[in-house]
Simulated scan of single mutants.
Amino acid sequence: YQAMCAERRWRVEDWREYLQHHPLVSRLIQDLVWLQLDKNGQLINSFRSNEKGYFTTNEYGAEVLLYENQFITVAHSALLSSDDTAQWQAYLKVYKVNTLFDQFSASLPDIGKFKDGIIDDRLGWLMDSFTLRDVLKKLGYERDNSEDGGYFYSYYKYFDSLNIYINIEFSGSMLPEENIPVVLYNLYFSNKKGIKDSAIALDKLPKVLLAEGYANYMAVANASSGFDPNWKDKLIW
């Protein structure tokens, strides 16, 4: 999953040696969709690997041949056309493939709507603090450090291969935690945890990481009761 978000690329020969021919990993890669890239990083094909070592596309049996000086990366909807994404979704459903993780649901936000690297189009969506915590914990987020008085205001997920944090801020909770009304604030990416002033420009991020972070932000919003125009009056402090 981290490799997908980082858009990590393997040379074909390395991918074959360390993934395809690995006694355990070879089984896992069959449950993912991959992209074949040329030496310049341009997309050639998307494909799956089967138990016989063949590579097929979403066109129900069309075979893919891999060559040296090409690259392989984990597929994602942010790297494919909407038609290709829909075809893979249909293929995986027809063949009942239980993928290791979702590769084709997250979409890119319209970055032209946001300033200074801060995504805030779900500001004011109301929920309780335990719901927010549970959604983010399931997505791999950790609670940020508490400030004076035991208050904390964000959760984060760290990608060590990129040295990038995904930060999701809200109106705050306290330790020990109680279930209180909270409001979702914003999403941003940074090289230092919880420092909004140094948010990375959205157009400088890997597309997959941006799409996945936005999907996490939306997952929290979707677990809420929706936007409340009087959200400021619903907070306990």
Rank of each mutant, 00 (worst) to 15 (best):
A3F: 07
A3T: 13
A6T: 04
E7D: 10
R8T: 13
R11C: 09
R11N: 08
D14M: 08
E17L: 15
Y18W: 10
L19Y: 14
Q20D: 14
P23M: 05
P23I: 09
V25D: 12
V25W: 14
L32M: 13
W34N: 09
D38Y: 00
K39A: 14
G41F: 05
G41H: 09
L43Q: 04
I44Y: 01
N45P: 00
N45K: 13
N45H: 14
S49G: 08
K52V: 11
Y54E: 15
Y54P: 00
T56R: 00
T57K: 05
E59F: 13
A62R: 13
A62G: 07
A62E: 14
E63T: 14
L65M: 12
L65T: 15
Q70L: 04
A75P: 01
S77V: 01
S82C: 08
D83N: 01
A90I: 10
A90V: 09
A90E: 12
Y91W: 14
Y91K: 13
K93I: 02
V94Y: 00
K96C: 05
V97T: 12
T99I: 04
D102Y: 03
Q103Y: 08
A106T: 04
L108R: 06
L108N: 05
D110V: 11
I111C: 06
F114M: 08
K115A: 10
K115V: 05
D116Q: 10
G117F: 07
D120Q: 07
D121Y: 00
D121T: 00
L123D: 07
G124V: 01
G124H: 05
R133H: 12
K137T: 14
K138D: 09
G140Y: 06
G140I: 10
R143N: 12
N145I: 15
G149Y: 10
F152R: 11
F159H: 12
L162E: 05
L162Q: 07
I164W: 03
I168Q: 06
E169V: 09
S173K: 03
S173Q: 08
S173M: 06
L175I: 13
P176W: 06
E177D: 15
L184P: 00
Y185R: 11
Y185D: 09
Y185C: 07
L187Q: 04
N191S: 15
I195K: 11
A199V: 01
K204I: 08
L209T: 02
L209I: 02
G213K: 02
N216R: 01
N216C: 11
Y217A: 03
A219Y: 03
A221K: 02
G226Q: 06
G226Y: 10
F227P: 02
P229L: 04
P229R: 03
P229K: 11
K232S: 13
K234G: 03
W237H: 11
